[in-house]
Amino acid sequence: MNLFRLFGDLSHLASILILLHKIQTTRSCRGISFKTQALYVTVFVARYLDLFYDWVSLYNFSMKVFFISSSIYILYLMKVRFRPTHDPSIDTFRAEYLVGPCVVLALIFNYKFTFPEVLWSFSIFLESVAILPQLFMLQRTGEAETITTHYLAALGAYRALYIPNWIYRYFSEGVVDPIAVIAGLVQTALYVDFFYVYFTKVLQGQKFELPA
């Protein structure tokens, strides 16, 4: 564990708390892509099933339980509790176009051709693109509530912080995880446009609006 990874994980944790806060206080899931949230559930379940048979640490265990349960809870909020506030007609990204290629990539690129390892690779690839329906929705509506942009910023910061973590681990432990690194770089790159608008507008006190 190093500080980059710790703050990355905390940022990930914060992003979910911000999202929950947004849904609970506005009593609405407007502006949130159900598809992206459903993809995150898939990612967490596929990757963290090892919590039943591999013990890493209490930290690792609790985070996994939190990520799985909170992501399922968010789906419940969107699909049941605040269902009327979710508008599927603007959440139109075809998620199957992401899942299919990720299955194929996982079958080709994995550290061992076993079920848990292929599942792990699949979750890494899927996580790297899971935000696309959300970003697509943002692009489509051209604007976002400020709280939603804070959610995305925290999520992007989590990914960005994992990069110095890998550099640090390479020098301190000699560890390189090429699958995680390549997928992680792709994932972080997807946030570049968003961060540009976030820094130049939202953090200057303006509304998140994309140029028409």
Binding site: R5, D9, H12, R47, D50, D54, V56, N60, M63, K64, F67, Y111, K112, E117, W120, Y162, N165, E173, G174, V175, V176, D177, P178, I179, A180
Partner: peptide
């Protein structure tokens, strides 16, 4: 140089 397996990152 070891790879990321077993996986200790979240």
């Amino acid at each position: 140089v070891s790879t990321g397996s077993p996986h200790d990152e979240l």
